[in-house]
């Protein structure tokens, strides 16, 4: 294969971000626009005081041209994240987060920090949550065996980060575990 080794097992974070950008987010448009057809679907019409759902890539584009305000998703605020952080630090399992929360949060906070009430606090909460979850996926490593590993509620960015070495390690374990049927009679 022509791909470099690290890219064979997983996609890059930037690619995940691209995928996440297809998700819809609510915006308050500041310009009027008729319903318009794009390759991924038709969005609009934009009528200024009314909220409207558009894909994140379109929201970022409009936002950078100062033609809309982003309405933060209901999970991207200080109270919700604080609740999740408490869960994350007090319970053993991963708490339930939107599957692509890391990508969506980063993109929105990057382009529209002025639409969030307390962006720095949100950022630091997200960082804490991420670190708490990382510690847990490290625990998962010690439970690794050759056939399966269950880490429910792990999110796309986290899966992507641990995927290359988890599958390699499981592959090695598969090789090392003695097969049930004897192989001695087939030289």
């Amino acid at each position: 294969m022509a791909l470099p080794t690290p890219l064979r097992a997983s996609v890059t974070p930037a690619e995940l971000e691209l995928i996440a950008s297809e998700q819809l987010v609510e915006i308050v448009p500041l310009v009027a626009m008729e319903r318009t057809a794009f390759i991924s679907g038709a969005y609009g019409p934009l009528r200024p005081p009314t909220k409207c759902k558009v894909p994140i890539w379109m929201a970022t584009n409009l936002k950078l041209k100062k033609k809309c305000r982003v309405v933060p998703p209901d999970w991207l605020n200080v109270e919700f994240l604080e609740g999740r952080l408490t869960q994350e630090t007090s319970e053993a399992g991963f708490s339930e987060m939107p599957f692509r929360f890391a990508e969506v949060a980063k993109v929105l906070l990057d382009v529209a920090p002025d639409d969030f009430p307390n962006p720095d606090k949100i950022r630091s909460l997200l960082k804490d949550i991420r670190e708490a979850r990382q510690a847990k996926s490290r625990e998962g490593l010690s439970k690794l065996d050759h056939s399966e590993l269950s880490l429910p509620n792990l999110c796309s960015m986290e899966i992507n980060e641990i995927r290359p070495f988890f599958i390699r390690a499981m592959g090695v374990l598969t090789d090392l575990v003695k097969e049930a049927q004897p192989q001695q009679d087939a030289p």
Binding site: P13, R130, F165
Partner: peptide
């Protein structure tokens, strides 16, 4: 590699 890539993205 994978940790570095993810970290850079963040």
């Amino acid at each position: 590699d994978s940790t570095r890539r993810t970290k850079r993205w963040y």
